[in-house]
């Protein structure tokens, strides 16, 4: 397997044809070697699922790496970046599987499945509480209008309300991730301070709306 500099990796992966195929093949081999070290913390290599999981994660990681080549900033070895992406995929896959298994167990153990909280929303909330909530929302709206720049507001809506990935938000706002983090951090601090001056905290607001 050839060793490449970061620049050579990027060049090969962005090219067409043989150079790209060879680079992908090498990446696959690098992940096949490295990933089991990471996974053996959580799942035994003797587990019949192990090999399958490794293969599944490599597939997904290669796709994601190609999609995100432009976000590689060259602050580490390219292969370290590649492993980082594969590990994130692997861990969320493991968490998803574990969650699925444990929720199955719970279904068997508890015959009385609790009603999801969202279905209980508003039950038992008297008219005063509703008024209080409406007033709260009104104040939050005002705080947001008064404290945030249009750009900060837009970024928060993209990320927090519409759930658009940070990369895409940076592109839409014609900025980069680092500048976007800075902008979000400033927005967060401004809002927190102002809410505190109004005698409100984000935690308190969420509790008021989530526990009915």
């Amino acid at each position: 397997m050839s060793t490449r500099t970061n620049q050579e990796w990027l060049q090969a992966l962005k090219s067409q044809g043989l150079a790209r195929d060879a680079a992908l093949e090498d990446l696959r081999a690098i992940l096949a070697k490295g990933l089991p070290y990471a996974l053996s913390r959580w799942i035994s290599p003797a587990d019949p699922q192990f090999e399958f999981l490794v293969e599944e994660v490599i597939q997904e990681a290669l796709l994601r790496i190609l999609e995100r080549l432009d976000s590689f900033q060259g602050r580490s070895q390219f292969t370290t970046w590649v492993h980082k992406i594969a590990i994130r995929i692997a861990l969320s896959e493991l968490r998803r599987k574990r969650w699925r298994d444990s929720s199955l167990d719970e279904l068997v153990d508890n015959e009385e499945t609790p009603v999801p909280e969202s279905l209980l929303e508003d039950s038992g909330a008297g008219p005063e509480i509703s008024l209080e909530r409406a007033d709260m929302l009104q104040r939050i709206r005002r705080v947001i209008t008064e404290e945030l720049t249009e750009r900060q507001r837009q970024a928060l809506i993209y990320l927090g309300v519409q759930g658009i990935p940070i990369e895409e938000v940076a592109r839409r706002l014609n900025t980069n991730r680092n500048a976007l983090y800075k902008l979000l951090h400033d927005a967060r601090v401004r809002l927190k301070h102002r809410l505190a001056r109004e005698g409100l905290s984000a935690q308190e607001i969420l509790t008021a709306f989530e526990t009915g």
């Binding site: 939050i140 947001i144 928060l156 927190k192 984000a202």
Partner: peptide, 20 residues
């Protein structure tokens, strides 16, 4: 553009989440 009540709460929730 006016934010709906639920969008407003999503936004607050996002500010509180460690996700960022």
């Amino acid at each position: 553009m006016e934010l709906s009540d639920s969008s407003l709460l999503d936004l607050i929730r996002f500010l509180e989440s460690p996700e960022l």
